[in-house]
């Protein structure tokens, strides 16, 4: 009982041997139990656990999917990190994904909170608006890609028209290397429906008494938002931040759809400005015949995500105050 947490728990519910029947495989209800969870278990082992372990193994091999993999030790990892002849765009893809994460995640959180506040404030028809705001999430990615290509069109695009009202000259959003990531991040913010729903739930969970007390104390709407709503939403924000960062670091589908449809080319947009980490990984796995290196990339990403997530748990406030 070295672990204090376990020790606490064992004093709360004593688990002495002999008190209750010990689990065993011979009993019939266990057979039925195993059978009932068998489909989920088969799925977990066959489609999640086994591929993950296999991928770890392949990451130490040179493998083109067809012939048998040959063991190369750590060289996939060291080549990815240090050999810019073999992997000229590896670090570029890291940079692209990081930039995307830094722009897209805050933008998405702000958009989601804004929408949640609006929907929460509406007395009638909030279901309708909630549905409207949620639609971008359930729209097929290919359709999203097509629609946004039109919206970003340098000649006829609605975005340029709207910016034109404010005197901004027309931009070539998806073909100017500096604008690609902001343009993609904006699409992800538009698709913030799930975060919006979670924020909405968070807002509903703030006790009305707090708001009333704040009003009695003379707090205006801005103060109430800053001193009551935001602190009370902290666990929600933390959850959305952590999951949002993980999802943003893995962004793939949208970039793939946007660039392959626009240019018949999946190489990541102008000057590799849209070559996200997972798109780069995908190209090596399925286009350049290097599944071993692609597996190594996925484990580098896994370690990176774990570090980033641990840092967030350490440094970001997560308790409601």
């Amino acid at each position: 009982m070295a672990n204090p947490v376990l020790a606490d728990r064992s004093t709360a519910t004593p688990d002495k041997p002999g008190r209750r029947p010990r689990p065993g495989f011979g009993r019939r209800d266990h057979v039925v139990g195993w059978l009932l969870i068998a489909p989920a278990l088969v799925y977990f082992v066959g489609f999640l656990l086994y591929p993950a372990i296999a991928a770890l193994y392949y990451s130490f091999t040179d493998w083109n999917l067809r012939s048998s993999p040959s063991w190369v030790g750590l060289s996939n990892y060291t080549d990815l990190l240090f050999d810019d002849v073999k992997y000229p765009h590896f670090w570029k893809s890291v940079q692209v994904s990081l930039l995307y994460t830094v722009v897209a995640v805050p933008l998405t959180l702000v958009a989601a909170l804004g929408q949640a506040l609006l929907v929460n404030a509406i007395r009638r028809g909030s279901n309708f608006f909630r549905l409207l705001l949620f639609l971008p999430v359930v729209t097929a990615e290919a359709a999203v890609g097509a629609i946004w290509r039109w919206l970003y069109d340098p000649q006829y695009g609605l975005i340029n028209v709207i910016l034109g009202w404010f005197g901004v000259p027309p931009q070539n959003w998806l073909n100017n290397p500096d604008l690609v990531i902001p343009a993609l991040a904006f699409i992800s913010a538009w698709q913030c429906g799930i975060s919006m729903i979670i924020y909405l739930a968070g807002l509903k969970g703030i006790p009305v008494s707090l708001r009333e007390a704040a009003i009695i104390d003379g707090a205006g709407p801005v103060q109430r938002f800053r001193r009551v709503v935001m602190p009370m939403l902290r666990p929600t924000t933390f959850y959305l931040l952590v999951t949002g960062v993980i999802a943003a670091l893995q962004v793939f589908g949208l970039v793939y759809v946007i660039f392959s449809a626009a240019n018949k080319s999946v190489t990541g947009g102008p000057e590799q400005a849209g070559l996200t980490y997972v798109l780069h990984l995908y190209l090596f796995a399925f286009r350049y015949d290097a599944m071993g290196a692609a597996c190594a990339m996925s484990f580098i990403l896994l370690v990176f995500i774990m570090i980033i997530t641990a840092l967030q748990f350490k440094f970001v406030k997560q308790e409601a105050a």
Binding site: P88, H89, P177, S265, T267, P270, E271, Q272, L283, R287, Y288, D289
Partner: peptide, 21 residues
């Protein structure tokens, strides 16, 4: 050349873009 697709995508394409831009 077996690695041609990679040369095409990762080396030639960026070189063309570098000159075009």
């Amino acid at each position: 050349v077996p690695q041609w697709i990679q040369v095409n995508d990762e080396i030639i394409a960026p070189a063309l873009e570098k000159a075009l831009s």
